[in-house]
Design a protein around this nucleic acid. Structure first.
Lengths: 125, 125
DNA sequence: GTACAACTTAGAGTGTACTCTAAGTCAAGA
DNA sequence: TCTTGACTTAGAGTACACTCTAAGTTGTAC
């Protein structure tokens, strides 16, 4: 019932490269992944979920070291729930701020584009 | 009437460091800034506007090389207006996509936070 | 006129996050 | 059994965007 995956399958599944998957394990973002007798990695669904979560955090600008802190708290168990919650809330706020910045810059670009339109009208007279 | 500024003033005004201002000039993002007889840089308002524009583009994930392309088009004059316009529109679309990603991830984090709340309620029984 | 902070240059160094290499082992099909 | 491609490791290399250093010059306040 529990699906297991090779590193290539996980890379295809998550869009995280093979090199990066090994790197994330090396720096402790992933717990040591199970190995086959051959030594080859065998990922479980929990690993894949973790990778997808990490991918989202990265995509939204969380640094590797912040993610390491988060994972360390996770490993430390239930006592750290409220701390992890606070981290996520901080990160949520940071993302909201990013969105606000982006929206402001969209408005700025729209202004620029409008100026260009104006310019083109003038040039075509 | 035209205000002129030293590099330190521009750094304070724009939030871009002195080192970075010199770097941007070196890689051609800024046209060669005027110099005093002493050789010290003297920035005009047009320079400051350009720096603020570049700062916004960077903040929204445009790479240095893309900005170089944009600036090159700008230098090439009016013939490139529609090309620059197209670049800005592309960048606008990229920013919109970023915003959509971020919003999706906010929803994901809200889910996680809700799970943590649930967990805390269980633990406190 | 002297101290001292701010400026100049070319070029070297840094931090982050990968990304690749070399040398070797393993698994599956012809 | 042989070949081929996927996998393993430790460690080196890379891209990007700065950021700093060294050695020297300039401007201003006392």
């Amino acid at each position: 019932m529990e699906d297991i995956f090779t590193i290539a399958q996980v890379a295809a599944l998550t869009g995280v490269s093979i090199h990066t998957l090994r790197y994330y394990e090396r720096v402790g973002l992933l717990d040591r992944v199970d190995r086959a007798n051959s030594g080859h990695r065998r990922y479980g669904e929990a690993d894949v979920n973790r990778i997808n979560f990490l991918k989202r955090l990265r995509k939204t600008g969380m640094s590797i070291s912040e993610m390491q802190r988060f994972v360390a708290l996770y490993r430390a168990g239930d006592d750290t729930l409220s701390e992890r919650r606070a981290m996520l809330e901080d990160h949520r706020r940071a993302i909201q701020a990013q969105i606000a910045d982006l929206q402001e810059i969209i408005a700025f670009i729209d202004d620029k584009i409008a100026t260009y339109d104006e310019q083109e009208r003038i040039n075509s007279r």
